[in-house]
Nucleic acid binder design. Structure first.
Lengths: 111, 111
DNA sequence: TCGATCCTTCGACTATCATCGAATCTTTGG
DNA sequence: CCAAAGATTCGATGATAGTCGAAGGATCGA
């Protein structure tokens, strides 16, 4: 992942409602959720939610798929993983900034 | 790290200039950099930079330390690590963010 | 085809962010 | 104490984000 993409992803997650929506979709798993379900769960106006979903979608963090009259949204785990990779590489400079890192254990890790 | 803190950190990093500043400080390591040096490296007005540094500081991502007339800023790796931990835990739902997701079951309400 | 459902787009409004010069604060050397 | 250096805070301005009702596009059942 490059800087502009990471920036887009960060910007998408850097909002209370969008972060909550994304976490909801993460919990929903690969099955995803319909826009209406999300709106109800979040208690927000459909048009407002749509705005945020579009934002997350542009950043590539969620995918959209039509199923009958409903639009199903689901989290893109690969994209999220790529973001974590970018942050680890570029914002930790090879230091012990690994996600869920064990205490600094130099080279050999004992299981 | 909790949601509000993660949100503050994400919001701080979700800006082109601030992300660049943070990466610069990460490269600078524990030694840090003076505000003036950063401003010159970034090519931005001192007051603008100060605005962004304050933002990063509020989010806990950087630390401030006076050294004579200069103010030295340095990246807080522990904080960054905490952010990565939050994202991994809360935005990957223990799936280790694997591109290959888990079992799918299609049991959705029809329209 | 028609009406209902589901969702997005549009339009207008408000709130917050980003920028930068000028003024201000802190520290230092003499 | 005074002047200079290094940064921040203030103030004004332009730009962007977020909200939500109303209107419009897509799909389905009958």
């Amino acid at each position: 992942m490059n800087s502009p993409d990471a920036l887009a992803a960060l910007s998408a997650l850097a909002h209370e409602h969008r972060l909550a929506v994304f976490r909801l979709l993460v919990q929903a798993g690969s099955e995803g959720m319909a826009a209406g379900e999300i709106a109800e769960a979040m208690g927000m106006a459909p048009s407002s939610l749509s705005f945020h979903l579009a934002h997350l979608n542009r950043a590539g963090l969620i995918a959209q798929q039509r199923e009958s009259r409903s639009l199903i949204y689901s989290a893109d785990f690969a994209r999220m993983n790529a973001l974590l990779g970018f942050l680890t590489e570029n914002c930790c400079a090879g230091r012990a900034c690994a996600p869920v890192a064990k205490p600094a254990q130099a080279k050999r890790r004992k299981a």
